[in-house]
Design a protein around this nucleic acid. Structure first.
Lengths: 202, 202
DNA sequence: GTCTATAAGATGATAGAC
DNA sequence: GTCTATCATCTTATAGAC
């Protein structure tokens, strides 16, 4: 589907999404958006009441997509080990395509904190998930399961966030970086599982 | 030292730093800065040629401070294990005080990529550090040392970055979050060291 | 060094013709 | 739904008095 096939509202949304991601809300102007979308300036306000409203729409959809994957994954019929592997490889693939996503979400999220938490219902998604029930069982005594989940997310997501600094620091080109992220699809689950209680065969 | 004791340039820098951190470059205006610093609008441009120049100054100092610690730490006379513990506890303390620091740095860094890399010389700092030489030795065969260093940074820093989402997701108040970060000062080094080659006594 | 005043331009948003 | 034209406001930055 080429860009021309999208209707005006979607052209605007797509262009705005890229610009917000790249430059943030403050540095992006409605004129930028209209120009990048190839539509008239007035149409931005015609379809979305304001720049702020357009931003909220995009942000909600972005975060929904990000969390939605998690919801499905955490409740399907895979084993615990498979869930871990899928978690890491799914998010690695997503972040290979859209490495700016986490910073976008996290840097803008505090300017719109109220709507987020409520509409998303992350809390309930997590508490109900089978994955977390099993994680709690396999968690070493005295260690809160959230610690281990933090580690899993951290080791999966942070390398993409820190890439600008890490890859300069390590003198690493982009190709090498991607290669390492591929390796981590296997490594991170291993590291993560080794943090759990020793498991008897079953 | 109260704010009144600072000279004008420093009052501006301090106010601007807080605002850039809170709202980013794009959303922060020179009027905000002057007002927060309690100085006349024209003085912002008198001391720093432009808003952009002021930002660069602050950014450089911030990143320098962040990296500088690392340089000292990685080369002093502590043992490898002590270096790991100091790394985690120093940065945890820093991030407890200024949790917005990583996102600020990382979200704005790509708008000013050229100056960063060069002036900082991170690459050289890292390559020369004793810490990395020992890390390379103790790294399991076939695993690049940078993987393990990524894990150490990730597990230390990411929880602060992801706090807005994690703490909502886990239904966690601020006090509990800080308590967990305190626990991680001990836990992260344990997890990290367990990823290394088994070590014989000596 | 610090102020007032203002230039010069950008920005979000809308009214009204088509 | 889409355009042009424009408003009202805000923005960075500077000139010039003190």
């Amino acid at each position: 589907m080429s860009e021309k096939d999208l209707d005006t509202a979607n052209k605007i949304k797509q262009a705005a999404s890229a610009l917000f991601l790249e430059k943030g809300f403050g540095r992006t102007t409605t004129r930028d958006i209209a120009s990048a979308a190839g539509v008239n300036l007035a149409l931005v306000n015609y379809y979305f009441r304001s720049k702020e409203e357009l931003f909220k729409t995009i942000m909600m959809e972005t975060v929904q997509g990000f969390i939605g994957q998690l919801h499905v994954l955490m409740n399907d019929q895979h084993t615990f080990e498979e869930k871990v592997e899928l978690f890491v490889s799914n998010y690695t693939e997503l972040l290979k395509k859209r490495p700016d996503l986490p910073i976008f979400m996290l840097s803008e999220i505090r300017n719109h904190p109220e709507e987020m938490a409520e509409r998303l219902g992350i809390e309930q998604i997590i508490k109900e998930a089978k994955f977390f029930q099993e994680l709690a069982q396999r968690c070493p005594d005295g260690i809160h399961p959230v610690h281990l989940f933090m580690n899993l997310i951290s080791m999966t997501v942070f390398p993409f966030i820190g890439k600008p600094i890490i890859s300069v620091g390590a003198g690493m080109d982009n190709e090498t970086f991607i290669l390492m992220m591929e390796q981590r699809k296997q490594l991170v689950p291993q590291w993560f599982l080794s943090m759990l209680k020793p498991q008897t065969e079953g």
